[in-house]
Simulated assay, not measured.
Amino acid sequence: MLNSQMANAYKNQQIMTASPAQLTLLLYNGALKFLNESIIALEQGDIQKSNSANLRVQNIIREFVVTLDMSYEVSKTWAQLYEYIEYSLIQGNIKKDIGQLQNAKGILQEMRDTWEEAMKQTQITRVAGK
Rank of each mutant, 00 (worst) to 15 (best):
M1K: 05
L2W: 11
L2F: 09
S4P: 02
M6H: 10
N8I: 13
N8E: 15
A9I: 15
K11Q: 15
N12E: 15
M16T: 07
A18K: 01
P20M: 01
T24Y: 01
Y28R: 00
N29S: 12
N29Q: 14
F34S: 13
F34G: 06
F34A: 11
N36H: 12
N36R: 11
S38G: 13
S38T: 07
A41L: 01
A41V: 04
L42Q: 10
E43P: 01
N54F: 01
R56E: 13
V57D: 06
I61C: 03
V66F: 13
V66W: 11
T67D: 02
T67A: 03
T67M: 03
L68E: 05
L68F: 09
L68C: 04
M70H: 11
M70Y: 11
E73L: 12
V74Y: 13
V74A: 12
V74H: 10
T77K: 14
T77V: 12
L81F: 03
I85D: 04
Y87C: 03
S88W: 05
L89F: 05
Q91F: 08
G92V: 00
I94E: 11
G99W: 07
Q102S: 09
N103E: 13
N103I: 03
L108R: 02
E110L: 09
M111E: 01
T114N: 07
W115A: 01
Q123R: 10
T125K: 09
T125G: 08
R126L: 15
V127K: 15
K130H: 08
